[in-house]
């Protein structure tokens, strides 16, 4: 058996690919394993966020007027700008994956920088949104004190802002982690670790980033827009 392995056909240059881990036979197999693992991870991410979405829907079902009243205090424009920024970052990330599929490391690094830039803009807008909420006392649970700042919201606004901060906060943490991963990928790309045959790490980074975008696609209309 091992003999057979040693006499692999000459055209099979996978045998010599330095990025092929010894427990995989080919780069294709290694890529497939990594991507399947990533999709399974994304599945757990979706399930985790689904609990928060359900909390939102239950709150909305029991207290529709309160949710409508409280959501008026969220800035539609800040949310809208962040949506455009995040969609753009998904686009640049997808182009980054395409660049490395074509073997263009330089363009990949440019796209990673653009994606990181968009992610940072998102976080800055979020920072301003959060500080406004903090200032007005629109905080979760027992920290809620908007009524002391002259905002009267009937019902259970402290629960609404609990849901708001949990959903956007967990999403924000994902954005921050995504930024760190992309920075790491930028460094690795600079070291020449990626090429047209070995880019699954970039692709998985992209999948993660697109999922973050995907969650925002639902968060935005539900929290900021819906009447």
């Amino acid at each position: 058996m091992s003999n057979e392995h040693a006499h692999a056909p000459a055209h099979d240059d996978d045998e010599h690919n330095p990025h092929l881990a010894h427990h995989f036979d080919t780069m294709g197999q290694q890529t497939a394993a990594a991507k399947l693992g990533m999709w399974l991870f994304l599945a757990t991410e979706i399930l985790m966020f689904s609990g928060l979405f359900l909390a939102y829907f239950i709150l909305r079902m029991f207290y529709p007027e309160m949710v409508l009243e409280a959501h008026e205090y969220l800035s539609k424009w800040a949310g809208g700008i962040n949506t455009v920024v995040l969609l753009t970052s998904s686009y640049t990330m997808a182009l980054g994956v395409r660049s490395i599929q074509l073997g263009d490391v330089k363009k990949l690094r440019l796209m990673l920088v653009l994606t990181i830039l968009c992610g940072c803009i998102f976080m800055v807008v979020k920072y301003f949104e959060y500080s406004a909420k903090f200032e007005h006392g629109m905080l979760p649970g027992k920290f809620y004190s908007a009524h002391l700042h002259g905002y009267e919201i009937d019902g259970l606004p402290h629960i609404f802002f609990g849901v708001y901060f949990m959903m956007t906060g967990l999403h924000g943490i994902h954005v921050a982690i995504g930024l760190a991963i992309m920075l790491w990928m930028f460094v690795r790309a600079g070291r020449g670790e990626f090429n047209a045959k070995n880019y699954v790490a970039i692709e998985n980074t992209g999948l993660y980033w697109h999922l973050v975008d995907l969650i925002w696609i639902f968060l935005f209309p539900l929290l900021y827009l819906v009447k």
Binding site: E4, H5, A8, P9, D12, D25, G28, Q29, A32, L36
Partner: peptide, 8 residues
């Protein structure tokens, strides 16, 4: 070379 499996 050895037989390769992708997703079973």
């Amino acid at each position: 070379m050895a037989k390769v499996f992708l997703n079973g």
